[in-house]
C-alpha cells in the first residue's frame, strides 16, 4: 500500500527547503518556534481513480508565518511559496507520482495581539503510485 501523503510531504518539504533556503520549512512546527517559518499544513484528499482506485485528488495548504509590524513579509513569503511550487514537475518520491501543483488560491490574516501574520497558499495535485 503506497503512502501517498508521505510522498507528497517529502516532495514538498524538499522543494520548499531547496527553493526557500532562508526560511525553515516544517511538517510539524515545534512549540515556540520563532518566525518566519513555513509549514505544510492541511492535506485534503479524495478518491479520483474510479473503480480501480489508485489516484487521489488532493488539496494541500502550505502555511507561512511572519512576525512584525507590517503585512509585507508574509505576502512576499506567500509569493515565494507560489513561485516554488506552481507548475513545478516533482520527481517520483517514495514511490508516489505527483502531478505539477496547480495554484488554487490563498488567504492572509493577522493575530491582533501578537503582530503575527499568517498566510496560506493552496494547491491542487493528483497522486498515484509511481
Amino acid at each position: 500500500m503506497t503512502d501517498f501523503q508521505a510522498g507528497l510531504d517529502k516532495a514538498l518539504y524538499d522543494r520548499l527547503t531547496s527553493q526557500i533556503g532562508d526560511v525553515q520549512t516544517f511538517s510539524h512546527v515545534p512549540q515556540d518556534k520563532s518566525r518566519p517559518l513555513i509549514a505544510i499544513a492541511s492535506v485534503t484528499g479524495e478518491a479520483a481513480g474510479g473503480k480501480s482506485a489508485g489516484l487521489d485528488r488532493v488539496i494541500v495548504s502550505v502555511q507561512c508565518e511572519t512576525h512584525g509590524p507590517t503585512r509585507r513579509p508574509v505576502t512576499l513569503l506567500k509569493s515565494r511559496i507560489r513561485a516554488a511550487l506552481e507548475n513545478w514537475t516533482p520527481a517520483i518520491t517514495l514511490d508516489v507520482e505527483i502531478s505539477s501543483p496547480v495554484y488554487l488560491g490563498e488567504d492572509t490574516f493577522r493575530l491582533e495581539d501578537d503582530d503575527i501574520y499568517f498566510g496560506i497558499v493552496r494547491f491542487l495535485v493528483f497522486l498515484q503510485p509511481g
Partner: peptide, 9 residues
C-alpha cells in the same frame, strides 16, 4: 500503468 491527467494536454 498510470492514470492520465487532463492538465497535461
Amino acid at each position: 500503468m498510470a492514470k492520465k491527467l487532463g492538465n497535461n494536454y
